[in-house]
Computed example of a mutant assay.
Amino acid sequence: MRASVVTLALATSFLVSAPAFAACPDDAAIDAFLAERAAARPTTAPVAAGGSIADALCAQEKIVARLSADLGPVVGYKAGLTSPKSQEIFGVSEPVFGTLLKGMILEPGASVSPSDAVRALYEADLIVEISDAAVNEASTPEEVLASIAGVRPFLELPALVVGKDEKLDGAAITSINVGAWRGVMGELIVLPQGAEGVAMLAGFTARLTDDATGETLSAAPGKAVLGHPLNAVTWIAGVLKAQGKALKPGDLVSVGSIGPLHPMKPGMSVTLAYEGLPGTPKIGASFK
């Protein structure tokens, strides 16, 4: 099957195969989880490993609603575990769905304290900015490309929140909103349309570098994400459609890990470069 067909199939199985909401965590459980999260104390996922995706999405919806009081409205979505390596680490065979809030998005060069979260991480990512609702019917990267304003550099700073001994699988990760915590986003990059733009997004390299040493921490191509980063947009659109929702102009879609996750270390600063995209854009952050 083509990669776009595969992502649509995954989006369908993500929801259709899950049972109806049967054990959505109650408000007290969600409040307790968020209190520990805010205090940067290890906690447990609202839906434990082995639970249902439906219950996990219910928990996520409650969490997002409460966080939005401080972090503002929903600005987009994230596809997590989109690389083979990340799927291997967490024992899943398909992506997971998360929600992004306005206050999670930071300016380039932001300084972040790892101690503000449990198991704070960083990873190479990419944001796709939607420009046309026709993206919801797109089935190929070329069709998605025609419905976006462009892409933005995105150094995602997720936090796993739970203790190191707790098992995380697709349901557990979904219930913690796929670790969405913070992320540094850059300026819009306009891409060529058609085959040229599609090839550019598949072939560019996301390179993470340690600013102090110049060491390459990771380097991976765009196609490490579901065969093509725009397939993540198709997948997100499919998940939303199954929920009776849709992507709209202005929405942001985080395509997920382009390479491995890295633990955030105090005193470190990193730069993420997109080799092969127009102007070789870069974005960075420091960890205090």
Rank of each mutant, 00 (worst) to 15 (best):
E142A: 13
R41Y: 03
E94I: 05
V64G: 13
L106G: 03
L8W: 11
T271D: 02
K288R: 08
K164Y: 04
T280C: 06
A172R: 14
A54K: 09
Y77N: 07
T99V: 14
R182T: 04
S131V: 00
E123N: 09
L34P: 15
D70E: 14
L126F: 15
A206W: 11
L67W: 15
C58L: 05
A138P: 00
V5A: 09
E142G: 08
K265V: 00
V253S: 00
T271P: 05
A23S: 11
D70T: 14
A206V: 08
F14G: 01
E107N: 13
F287T: 02
Q60Y: 07
L277P: 04
M185H: 15
P25M: 02
P95V: 13
P192A: 07
S286E: 06
V112E: 15
K245D: 09
G80V: 13
L277H: 02
A22N: 15
G227T: 09
L261R: 10
P108H: 02
P19C: 04
S113I: 00
L168D: 06
L226F: 08
V135N: 06
L230T: 03
I63E: 14
S175K: 13
V239M: 10
K223M: 03
F90P: 12
G163C: 08
R37N: 12
K102V: 03
L261F: 11
I283W: 15
A232V: 09
G244P: 11
F97T: 01
F90M: 13
P46C: 01
G72W: 05
L10C: 08
E94N: 04
G203A: 06
T280P: 07
D165G: 07
Q243T: 03
T174D: 08
E143F: 06
K85P: 00
D210A: 12
V64L: 10
E196P: 08
L8R: 15
G179T: 01
L240W: 06
T234H: 13
E196Y: 04
A79K: 09
M268P: 04
T140N: 02
P260K: 12
G227N: 05
A220H: 15
I258H: 09
A79C: 13
G244D: 04
A232W: 10
V239K: 08
S52H: 04
K245N: 12
I53Q: 10
G91V: 03
A22V: 05
S269Q: 10
L277C: 05
S175Y: 14
R152K: 14
L217A: 06
G103T: 07
L121W: 06
P278S: 02
G186A: 04
A9M: 11
T205Q: 13
P229M: 11
A3W: 15
L240R: 08
R182L: 01
K265A: 00
L208Y: 11
G163A: 11
V16K: 14
G76Q: 01
M200Q: 09
P114D: 11
I130G: 09
S4L: 04
M268T: 03
A120N: 08
S111L: 01
E129Q: 14
G103R: 07
G267L: 06
